[in-house]
Design a protein around this nucleic acid. Structure first.
Lengths: 211, 211
DNA sequence: TAGATTGTTAATCGATTAACAATC
DNA sequence: TAGATTGTTAATCGATTAACAATC
């Protein structure tokens, strides 16, 4: 279990899980690395190795792997059955979308409140969760055991806001601003829309079908 | 210019651009690979190579590189000064966020209209753009020169909707649904929130500060 | 000039892929 | 049994990093 998992590998696990849940919902009991590989356009060997690294049981030659067990193992590994508490910082359109989206709970993340500076939004509710002023953040989140901040502010204030979050003891920042952020002691995951779009555009214009 | 650019490399270009624009706005005229590398926590050699691959001019030993020229080269390379037309398919909270966000224009993407099945939304405007019924999509987009679809439907209908988009002649799908999609002749870029969150959580819980 | 930075060629590293004996 | 699938060890591949002479 303490084997090192690369970030690319980590990205694949939710894909496996999604696929396996689809199988499970169709009443399928067993599957195998080759079948999964085919469905997700990966190589058999890669799937086999990935699953070995997180599963509590061995696969069985010929029979393959138990779908329900694998789902359970993946959910455990990804921490989906243990809710982390999160805040949304920057309750613009994107922030609002997140506050109204309950689906993150399935991924082990519970959004409990939002923060903004806009007086029209501060004091209101969004997705049934309160929105506070950013100035009160440090005080407000004390004792609430909040681990993660979803950062959806304008890019111009991303850095200073991240700094504030670091001081407030946030453990991880899920950064949607497009700014490059780096803080000692805080894990930062960049969801860079511009980078993703750059890949899409480049592949469209160069007609290279593969990654 | 027809050198092969890897997807990892492609992801870095918007980061360079963002950094260079910040420099430019501060009135800084020149920079160098080592300085950029330091600012973005990359290696000097990597920055040098990346910039070589897209820039129209050589850097100058000692002096480094011209910020304004580099910005221009990057914008050209990324296609930011040539607008592609896009639609939003699935105008829920996330889709609405995109329809109200004008920032994609800076990235060469113009959202012109939305599609949904919800009668409360169909026929209305969102972010000043019309929302049509998905059933009318194939007919409606004809002749509008729409290249890209931003897919923000529920995951359950992602596959069938993607199929519809492929038939309608869409060139690229920017997939936010979390489903694995694959269609012959259509470029698909997956913006997998679950994968990103998996990386964040894993690093928080394992205290590994780096990617 | 001296030294920072360049472009380019070679070495390293890590992830993916291939090979293969073991087994239900 | 026969054959699909397994886990594991070795080979390949591609991207990152290091090395170095050239130069403003």
């Amino acid at each position: 279990m303490d084997k090192k998992i690369s970030s690319r590998q980590l990205e694949r696990y939710p894909m496996y899980l999604n696929h396996l849940i689809t199988l499970h919902n169709s009443g399928i009991i067993n599957t195998s690395a080759p079948k999964i590989a085919k469905a997700l356009d990966l190589k058999t060997e890669q799937v086999r190795k990935d699953l070995q690294d997180v599963s509590s049981d061995f696969g069985k030659p010929k029979a393959g792997r138990d779908v329900a067990l694998l789902i359970n193992d993946l959910q455990n590994f990804l921490g989906y059955n243990q809710l982390d508490r999160a805040i949304v910082v920057g309750v613009g359109h994107l922030g609002q979308a997140f506050m109204n989206f309950d689906g993150f709970k399935e991924y082990g993340l519970e959004i409990v409140e939002g923060y903004d500076v806009n007086p029209k939004i501060v004091g209101q509710k969004e997705g049934n969760k309160p929105v506070y002023h950013v100035d009160s953040l440090q005080e407000s989140i004390k004792g609430k055991d909040i681990k993660v901040a979803i950062l959806t502010t304008p890019i111009e204030v991303a850095n200073e806001t991240a700094c504030l979050l670091a001081k407030a003891g946030i453990k991880g920042i899920w950064n949607f601003t497009g700014a490059f952020l780096s803080y000692e002691g805080v894990v930062i995951e960049n969801m860079n829309l511009a980078s993703s779009l750059a890949k899409l555009s480049h592949r469209i214009n160069n007609k290279t079908s593969k990654k």
